[in-house]
Nucleic acid binder design. Structure first.
Lengths: 229, 229
DNA sequence: TTAACATAGTGTATTTTTCACACTGAAATT
DNA sequence: AATTTCAGTGTGAAAAATACACTATGTTAA
């Protein structure tokens, strides 16, 4: 039987794909490992699950350690358990993705021992990843592609106040295709879950667009009805 | 720290919701436990994952031990990891569902030690379940409800040759609503993934219906296009 | 043999949704 | 005042979804 990892009496871990949206780019947070195995490789942030924390708590902790953020939209999406996915033992990893608003100085924390650095990296320019993390990322991206079609998750990537163009941008980048502006607006507004803030964008060097916010109350009242793109 | 279970050096398990369809009813396989904790309770079939098997293999093994079946449609759908979900220690459980064709003598095997008996039970008449198995079942049912709308999984619950009425039945029971016969047939046939076998149902005491089979080749050629109900 | 029964199988009209498509308007910059 | 940049808007055509009820065929039992 294989050697079990030290430190925790536990053989399962969490890996997180932290998605962030900034200036029209979809990025994820990667760390550069400072420990074997895969020392100096880029990897998804992750950690062993402590004995006294639930999976959700563990994922939230990892996110918090890196970004100091709490109350972020996170979702468990798959568990990876191939026998040899970790070279030092049997580690089953439960994958989560998170969606968060970048911009401003949401830079990740300096990391003590287990990573040299952490950076937001455009999903179109990912380096080679440690372990089976490429596979974990792929499945996570696929997941949000499916989910954005039916669930109001795009708003999690935007600031509270956003323009319709920014919203369309999120859809276009995640779905990886151009959408028609008029049709997008018509459909999006028809769901009745956006609140017109009667307020304009600021600091742009052209005509300012109207700001909207996502109205959770109204969304909750839709019940069965589904958003669909 | 809590005591870890004996027998396996592993603290994760698989639980399976085995769905079967028979005579218009959706059923799952439940076992009556023969061991503490929850001795004499009904539970989902499950087991600890061995160190040398992947999660998928483990799920397939559990299914096989109960039904002698292999090559069944199974899918991992969620991992349950609350700290206290198992009274004797920290056990994270990865949930799978399977879809299989009942009818004939697909009765579950006699079980040696860990269960007294196993039965197919209508999902509308479930007893109280051990552990957090009600929650695991609920999420599994929810999952196939979503999935049947876009993926060709209904066929997994039917014999190879089936009538359109039987197929409609599967949809109605899983989606839990009546569908219009003419619209259902029109739409289903329009996907072009059913092969008319030019053959009639046998042994019925009324006009026999045409038999169809699901044509995987044609489905594969649809690529992006999605089935949608 | 025929009447009763049970389910198979079929078409159309209406409404709703999707899709394709291009210009004018407002604000800022030079 | 001219230029630039993006905001914002409507219509017609095609496709898809929905609502709806009768005839056809085979079996069974009188």
């Amino acid at each position: 039987m294989k050697e079990v990892l030290p430190h925790f009496n536990s053989t399962f871990s969490i890996d997180c794909v932290l998605f962030g949206f900034d200036e029209g780019e979809l990025k994820i947070l990667l760390i550069e490992r400072n420990e074997e195995p895969f020392k100096d490789w880029w990897a998804l942030p992750g950690n062993l699950v402590a004995m006294d924390e639930s999976l959700d708590q563990s994922a939230a902790r990892i996110l918090h350690e890196l970004t100091s953020l709490s109350n972020v939209y996170m979702e468990q999406y798959y568990t990876f358990g191939d026998v040899n996915r970790h070279p030092q033992g049997r580690v089953v990893s439960i994958a989560y993705y998170a969606l968060l608003r970048l911009g401003g100085d949401k830079s990740p924390k300096p990391l003590s021992t287990y990573a040299k650095q952490a950076h937001w990296i455009n999903v179109k320019e990912l380096p080679k990843l440690a372990f089976d993390h490429q596979q974990i990322f792929d499945k996570g991206l696929e997941k949000i592609k499916r989910r954005i079609k039916h669930q109001p998750i795009a708003f999690e990537l935007l600031p509270e106040k956003f323009t319709l163009t920014q919203l369309q941008n999120v859809y276009e980048i995640i779905l990886n295709k151009k959408l028609d502006k008029r049709n997008f607006r018509k459909k999006m507004l028809s769901f009745g879950v956006l609140k017109d803030l009667e307020e304009k964008q600021k600091g742009v060097s052209f005509r300012a667009a109207t700001l909207y916010k996502f109205d959770k109350r109204r969304y909750a009242k839709l019940f069965g009805k589904e958003i669909s793109f």
